[in-house]
């Protein structure tokens, strides 16, 4: 994707979410905060998936981000506390990566899943440090003003989008895709495969940690079940697949559409049944658009371009 499209994406995100923050509708602001946090988390998952590693443990980084920033902010202040909390995610990713990224795909996925599940247990058995099951009370972001929180989180989303685009640049994209489809070929092309995978995992962990830190600062109260739930591992996967993998726009668009579908299903079906309808709609989307919304849009644009191009050629041929 060219730099112009990337810039357009950042502007669309900033203007769209910024407008919602300024318009002041409380429901829309809460929905937009949810969309932005899902989008950041989905971008974190997508960055890693470009190296062929499917993570089912993003909830661990989400939780470490929330807990790390929440526990360290009172000690070091907001900026250093967040930086330290997010660096903690990178350290966790590097340690886990050193052990698991030599494993083949499925084993890595299972390892991340168990990492995600074990983090919650770790919190529960260390009440002295982490508050255990009663949770913690992180400082509330932006004095608890939802519009200001949305603006801040929008800023983080733009940063996450820039990070994602850096990993889609010529420097990284071909090497990542080569690692994904043929690691031996990548190594024979000079790419340090395991180190590159660990680096991608660390960056992915940090971006997921930012999403978690944002979430933890929303209400000033976090319990382990809130942030370490497997939902935070499944959501980024569903969002990225729905929106379109290997893109920056896909996870953002996916987060928006998923939330939209969820609200519509809740409105028309209600109760618990809405989740079934919502799940069915996601499956339908994936069946119809296997390359996600962005892939479908690209295909449509290509088709339109071809339809425009063909008559133009036949016209010029007729003239000749």
């Amino acid at each position: 994707m060219s730099a112009r499209y990337s810039l357009l994406t950042y502007i669309a995100v900033a203007v769209g979410l910024g407008a919602i923050a300024l318009a002041g509708n409380a429901f829309l602001i809460q929905a937009a905060i949810g969309v932005a946090i899902s989008a950041i988390l989905a971008l974190s998952w997508d960055i890693l998936s470009r190296t062929g590693q499917v993570s089912l443990g993003q909830s661990a980084f989400f939780g470490i981000g929330a807990y790390g920033s929440g526990l360290l902010t009172p000690q070091f202040g907001v900026v250093l506390g967040w930086v330290a909390g997010i660096l903690l995610c990178a350290v966790a990713a590097i340690l886990i990566g050193l052990v698991t990224l030599r494993l083949r795909r499925l084993y890595f996925t299972i390892a991340t899943l168990s990492f995600g599940l074990s983090m919650q247990v770790l919190i529960l058995v260390t009440p002295g440090i982490t508050g255990g099951s009663t949770g913690i009370m992180p400082p509330v972001l932006m004095g608890g003003s939802p519009p200001a929180q949305l603006l801040l989180i929008t800023g983080f989303l733009v940063v996450a989008a820039i990070v994602s685009d850096i990993f889609l640049s010529d420097r990284f994209r071909p090497a990542f895709f080569m690692i994904r489809s043929n690691p031996a070929l990548a190594a024979s092309s000079g790419v340090p495969v395991v180190a590159t995978k660990i680096m991608a995992f660390a960056v992915s962990g940090m971006v997921a940690g930012v999403a978690g830190a944002c979430y933890g600062g929303l209400y000033g109260y976090v319990i382990p079940e809130d942030v370490f739930t497997p939902n935070w591992s499944i959501l980024p996967l569903a969002v990225s697949i729905l929106g379109g993998m290997d893109t920056t726009l896909g996870p953002i668009l996916g987060a928006l559409v998923l939330r939209f579908l969820e609200e519509i299903a809740r409105h028309y079906v209600g109760g618990v049944g809405y989740q079934v309808v919502y799940g069915a709609v996601i499956i339908l989307f994936i069946v119809i658009l296997p390359r996600g919304l962005v892939g479908g849009l690209r295909q449509l644009l290509r088709k339109l371009a071809r339809r425009d191009a063909v008559p133009a050629r036949s016209r010029s041929e007729a003239k000749a």
């Binding site: 010529d170 420097r171 994209r173 071909p174 090497a175 080569m178 990548a186 092309s189 000079g190 790419v191 340090p192």
Partner: peptide, 10 residues
Amino acid sequence: EVIGVPFRYA
């Protein structure tokens, strides 16, 4: 892109 990988990494 394929030829570019070793040019960047090797």
